[in-house]
Design a protein around this nucleic acid. Structure first.
Length: 646
RNA sequence: GCCAGCGUAGCUCAGCGGCUAGAGCGAGGGUCUCAUAAUCCCUAGGUCGGUGGUUCGAUUCCACCCGCUGGCACCA
């Protein structure tokens, strides 16, 4: 029916082990802005988001709370629905990996990969981190914990189905060559290409070690591995599983998968390989955006610096949060979040520039024209802002097409600035008392209103509610079709409505005083019960005898130097009282060699020696792992080297 | 260590061979009074990371160095 071009875009599906934070919010807001923009310029848009609900982590968390996994998932999914509603997210569909339609699609995809000869039964043995849902090479495991998050890992040896990813190395590289915009931004594309060029190993796609997942077709005991399960959501939501074999399904391929840079590889390598195997077209683009950093550090639960959208939403409303996310970060790069930046944007752009412009225009029309929007006056002032608006519109479109949201909003705000200057230039408040200049007076007010409505329209993908409200106060409908620039969007005869400030200015000092008081008493905490942190998941309880096998000793650092050619390694000579040992530790990023000399530390004295970067390590030192940053355990009091620690 | 990218005004960044290197925010001064003590105007003089080179001319191209970020290696 529709001959409009289609535009299918997706967010990742979010794992239900955590409450939504600003990272989830960011991706979803970006996607929503793109969706709204595309609709406004004439596309037939399909916008998908959803949740990833399977896996060991959910299974265990649910068990710890004494509920079924699906109940846990339902609870968190509810939180997502609430948040997306509060943020005016306009997704067309919400896929859950526990949906029956998804299961059908996964089964179908696997069957197609199997008939392509890309699946075989093998055995997998490795160190598995249920926290990350990933295997890690044994060399990367230390203290029985995974390198990324420090979750406990466990040895898993099991029968497993494998996908012949290795077979797709060349086809993928060929596809990359032919589609230079397949992965964006370009710098990320280079990394993906380098990864594929370095060689691809077959991928284990089933597990026998967990129950909470989609049963692997025709293989009792096997459950589909998380990435096949999760990635398939992009087609299962379109009815891939339900359609007859080989039938085309609407909206595929996607125009863009929006993903965080941390999961770019799965979308730019594994997913296209699955699709190639199954004979499906590949998405046009995978866009890996940056992260929001707080205080220069990546947000993570273990660092406790996660920014939750709740308080911002409560204090400033959804549109202010959306505006900030889109305006402040250059899409694709990392951005830094701080409350101060948020307030500066809010006060400067929203309260002073846009909100205040609305207030003054409405008041001027109410006072000067009895509140009625006239027909476009003939005086030249009515067209004075037209070129600026046309320029802004062109820049806005170009920026949005290029995923430059900050640039698109900047273009709209240039028009806001022009309009404020226009008002000062013509001073309609002074014209009002001069009957001989009535036509000019009307033209100035009309022109300012028209320009403001144009700016609101351009802001609408980012701030749908505020844009509606601005239009409403100007007595006009918000224009829906923004595909071409047109001067004269105002409805003649509309009546302005004076209401409370759209974005009330916030007193920064007062705000910080208040929010600090709140923050101190109430550290950021998830509302729903989290899986209890202790006892440590995945680590079996030890008997005291077993623990005593570990020979922990106090050691004094005699000397310390960097290991040649290694970024993270320090080589320490330590005095164990009875002997000296050489220990290699991965702490060079956190400690200067000199800083450790003389310190009393704790070492595992009876660890099997190992070679790191060719240097022998005769033991290991103990350190806390704070979000990947090691903090070496030391003593405050003077303890002789060699003293047993227990 | 390898591979990318970056390093420009207090902050965030734009510019990417050539007029006196720009914007927003912040800061200082001024103005108006329609407006949310908002708007608007003026001001900041920054070795464009460093050193060489190519060129009539380099912030813009090349080499090297320093620093930072990311990917890989690596982190018992």
């Amino acid at each position: 029916m529709s001959d409009r071009p289609r535009f299918y875009l997706t967010t990742p599906i979010y794992y239900v082990n955590d409450e939504p934070h600003i990272g989830h919010t960011y991706t979803t807001v970006v996607a929503d802005a793109v969706a709204r923009y595309r609709r406004a310029v004439g596309y037939d848009v399909r916008f998908l988001t959803g949740t990833d609900e399977h896996g060991q982590k959910i299974e265990r968390a649910a068990r710890a709370q004494g509920i079924r996994p699906i109940e846990l998932a339902d609870r968190v999914v509810h939180r997502y629905h609430e948040l997306w509603r509060a943020l005016s997210i306009s997704h067309d569909d919400f896929i859950r990996t526990t949906d029956p339609r998804h299961r059908l699609a996964v089964e179908k995809l696997i069957r197609r990969m199997k008939s392509a000869g890309d699946v075989y039964l093998g055995a997998y043995e490795g160190m598995y981190c249920s926290g990350c849902e990933a295997f890690y090479p044994e060399s990367q495991i230390r203290d029985g914990r995974c390198p990324d998050q420090g979750h406990p890992v466990e040895r898993v040896a099991e029968e497993s189905y494998f996908f012949r990813l290795s077979r797709y190395q060349e086809p993928l590289l060929e596809h990359y060559r032919r589609n230079p915009a397949f992965v964006r931004p370009a710098s990320r594309f280079n990394e993906v290409r380098a990864f594929v060029e370095s060689g691809l190993r077959d991928l284990s796609i089933s597990r026998t070690s967990l129950d909470w997942g989609i049963p692997y077709p025709d293989a009792p005991g096997h459950v589909v591995y998380v990435w096949v399960d999760a990635l398939t959501n992009y087609v299962s939501a379109l009815g891939y599983g339900e359609d007859p074999e080989g039938a085309p399904f609407r909206y595929w391929p996607a125009q863009v998968h929006l993903v965080g840079k941390d999961i770019l590889r799965f979308h730019a390598v594994y997913w296209p390989a699955f699709l190639l195997s199954a004979g499906l077209p590949l998405p046009e683009c995978v866009y890996g955006h940056g992260w929001w950093l707080k205080d220069e550090a990546k947000m993570s639960k273990s660092l406790g610096n996660v920014v939750r959208p709740g308080p911002l939403l409560r204090d400033f409303g959804p549109d202010a949060l959306r505006y900030f996310l889109l305006r402040e970060m250059t899409f694709g790069l990392d951005g830094t979040y701080s409350d101060e930046q948020f307030l500066d944007r809010y006060n400067g752009d929203l309260a002073n520039d846009l909100g205040n412009l609305l207030s003054r225009v409405v008041t001027l029309i109410e006072g000067g024209l009895s509140g009625a929007i006239p027909a476009q006056p003939d005086a030249p002032e009515a067209r004075e802002l037209e070129p600026a608006a046309a320029d802004a519109h062109a820049a806005w479109r170009a920026a949005f097409d290029a995923y430059d949201f900050s640039g698109a909003l900047a273009a709209a705000w240039r028009l806001v600035g022009e309009t404020n200057r226009f008002l000062v230039r013509h001073a309609p408040w002074a014209l009002a008392s001069d009957p001989s200049r009535a036509e000019t007076h009307r033209a100035v007010l009309w022109g300012a209103s028209e320009a403001l409505l144009q700016a609101a329209a351009m802001a609408s993908p980012a701030m749908p509610r505020a844009a509606e409200e601005i239009a409403s106060r100007l007595g006009s409908p918000l224009p829906r079709d923004l595909s071409a620039f047109r001067w004269g969007l105002l409805t003649t005869g509309g009546r302005v409505a004076k209401r409370a400030p759209l974005f009330p200015r916030i007193d920064k000092a007062a705000y910080f005083k208040e929010s600090r008081a709140v923050d101190d008493s109430k550290p950021i905490q998830p509302a729903a019960p989290e899986p209890k942190p202790a006892p440590p998941e995945g680590v079996a309880l030890l008997t005291i005898d077993e623990f005593m096998k570990v020979d922990l000793r106090v050691a004094r650092v005699v000397s310390c130097e960097r290991v040649e050619g290694a970024e993270k390694l320090l080589k320490l000579r330590v005095d164990l009282g009875t002997e000296e040992r050489q220990i290699v530790a991965g702490i060079a990023k956190a400690y200067a060699p000199e800083a450790l000399v003389g310190k009393r530390i704790v070492v595992v004295a009876n660890l099997k020696p190992a070679k790191l970067r060719g240097v022998e390590s005769q033991g290991m030192l103990l350190a806390a792992d704070l979000g990947g940053r090691p903090i070496v355990a030391t003593f405050e009091e003077d303890v002789p080297p060699g003293t047993r620690v227990r």
